[in-house]
Design a binder for these strands. Structure first.
Lengths: 205, 205
DNA sequence: TTGCATACCATACAAATGTCTGGTAATCAA
DNA sequence: TTGATTACCAGACATTTGTATGGTATGCAA
């Protein structure tokens, strides 16, 4: 017999394993759970799973293979892959999205089927808005935005993050850093890439 | 025999069906495909699926049940569900993780199988570190941390985010805001919950 | 016509997988 | 002690499911 573990401990790990697999879209078989935990009997895995179902942590469709599911309550909103871009040159946005140099990151978008991309921020111009160099902003492509939105726009052929301000027929791009000057593009000469809907910072492991 | 459809037409529908099911995390069996398309033979479904694999539209793991996959799936790093906590009282961490009031968010962790949780930040004590009220920090549970790490610790029975500083046999929790005072817990009296590995800010739609 | 390809069908078999029955050992409380 | 509970094991069985073999009908092109 394998080592006996404290009550509930193994079961928590099993739940964890199930969540990972189910989120990844690859529901495991009972025997795959057995394998993962080195049980010598299928039944051991099955018992943990059935108990998790009783506890409401999982649901299942009896009789069907790979039939365990996450209950509605703990449903994680599905995340979509979003291309992570490094530097964006003018006009090269579409190509950059097609073949991102930073790979993809998972973003939970709010239902709509919009075009998203992610951008690594350089420079300190938005530091007072809590956006530091190295942060990743997630951007929804849209041709316009409201005053007060944080947006990504092409300035001098480079994508930059700024605060959008509109006052009577003037559009301005404000940095959130007193050391920088606002940018006032000529009327109608603003190429807005989209609006920032999320900011992420990855700290060292 | 069922009605004969133009070449490739049914197959396109099958691919669509597969995409839907696979994205939903519920890969179908060959017979479920048969059912969905009212084929009177399993083989009809199987032939469509195998051809889609040959065309590169799908991949599959031979021999395993529900073994068809989306080829792009390999590009997207898998994300794990992480419980999102609101307020954490002393000692109630484990229970809070078991039954999070904020649901779950998807996090791509760097391979290790660690315990993670997410915490909504209140207060402005870390504003100079780019962590604003309402931000979500993702925390890896660990009993110790290095000097300079941003950590979550229990202070006065509440979970708070602070900068950890160690100098000769003293451990201090520093806010990143000049309006707040550093916290110097009595030696050995620091209950460290974990280290912040990611910061997220969700901006309005 | 012939030959070939496509779409679909019928049936069988074997492997994968869910499920069941009964058992051992450890822990805890009465 | 006794009994109850938990964690795990062993082996079997039944269903689900992947796979194979061969067949029918339609359309198309040489």
């Amino acid at each position: 017999m394998a080592a006996r573990t404290p009550p509930g401990q193994t079961r928590r790990q099993v739940l964890r394993f199930m969540r990972e697999r189910l989120i990844a879209g690859r529901p495991p078989t009972v025997r795959e759970v057995q394998e993962a935990f080195k049980f010598r009997s299928v039944q051991s895995a099955r018992e943990h799973l059935e108990i998790l179902v009783e506890e409401g942590k999982l649901t299942k469709e009896p009789g069907v293979s790979r039939g365990y599911r996450l209950p509605e309550a703990s449903l994680v909103p599905p995340s979509v892959p979003v291309p992570l871009l490094g530097q964006v040159q003018a006009g090269a946005l579409t190509e950059a999205i097609e073949d991102p140099d930073g790979g993809y990151i998972g973003v939970q978008r709010g239902g709509s089927n919009d075009e998203l991309f992610a951008l690594k921020v350089t420079g300190e111009s938005m530091i007072d808005a809590g956006i530091l160099p190295g942060d990743v902003v997630i951007v929804r492509c849209q041709p316009t935005a409201d005053s007060g939105d944080i947006v990504v726009a092409l300035v001098d052929g480079e994508a930059t993050v700024k605060l959008l301000k509109k006052n009577r027929r003037r559009v301005e791009l404000h940095p959130a850093n007193p050391a920088f000057e606002p940018i006032v593009p000529a009327t109608g000469d603003l190429s807005l890439l989209g609006k920032v809907i999320e900011v992420r910072r990855y700290l060292g492991k």
